[in-house]
Amino acid sequence: MALDTAELAHGLFRVLETGDLELAVDVVDEQNHNREAAVAPPACAIPGPAGTLASGAWLRSAFSDLRFPVLGVARNDDQVWVRLRMQGRHTGPFVRFKDGALDQAIPPTGREIDFEQVHLLDVRGGKVVRHEALRDDITMLGQLGVFPPAPATALRMLAWRVSGRAARAAAEVTALAAGAAGALADASHPTGRAS
């Protein structure tokens, strides 16, 4: 049974919260393009469910208890607009990328994030085929002490960069996201994997 557009929207964000492989296949089209992957590890730009699973792994690596409570949904036959909040606790490095390379690594602060986003999803054939967002990243960075820069946070970020911890965090989250994307291939070919 095909999900309606509102159920697809809820399902997409549930995939980001949980990494649910079966749900990702049910709600994300193989041709899905996530325009928001520009600041994420390279695997997040992979089309289809694999890129969505990678995006969720990246976010969950930085924010424990990640959740996306939906505040409102508007839709027509082939588009869904979702207004929601992104919430969680910053317990892992939040690594942002530019052109696939490390741009910024924010060391864990233990702080809560809670900010609003609006997402536009294009739907075709009962699945999400394209995703764009308008996020309030400035509020999130403010909640993490990055913008405007809190002196303690700025010093920790500089120390991470100079010591190589930022580069190691980027490598780890890149591998984690790639592993989440690869889980889809592993699940569809369980005997093709080396032991």
Results as ranks from 00 to 15, higher is better:
91 T>S: 12
158 L>Y: 02
101 A>L: 08
153 T>N: 02
67 R>F: 10
128 V>Y: 13
17 E>V: 06
82 V>Y: 06
113 I>P: 02
20 D>A: 08
34 N>I: 08
189 H>M: 09
65 D>M: 03
89 R>I: 11
143 Q>Y: 01
169 A>T: 06
115 F>S: 04
139 T>L: 14
107 P>V: 10
135 R>Q: 09
117 Q>I: 13
74 A>C: 10
149 P>L: 07
107 P>G: 07
34 N>R: 09
18 T>W: 07
73 V>C: 13
145 G>W: 05
116 E>P: 03
100 G>K: 01
120 L>F: 08
26 D>C: 03
73 V>K: 11
16 L>R: 09
91 T>Y: 00
106 I>Y: 00
45 A>M: 05
67 R>S: 15
18 T>E: 08
84 L>S: 12
129 V>C: 15
181 A>F: 13
101 A>S: 06
63 F>G: 00
110 G>H: 03
133 A>L: 00
57 A>P: 04
7 E>P: 01
117 Q>S: 13
142 G>I: 01
109 T>P: 03
189 H>I: 00
171 A>P: 00
169 A>R: 06
79 Q>V: 15
163 S>F: 12
3 L>W: 04
86 M>D: 01
108 P>T: 10
37 A>N: 06
40 A>I: 01
192 G>P: 01
83 R>T: 11
11 G>K: 11
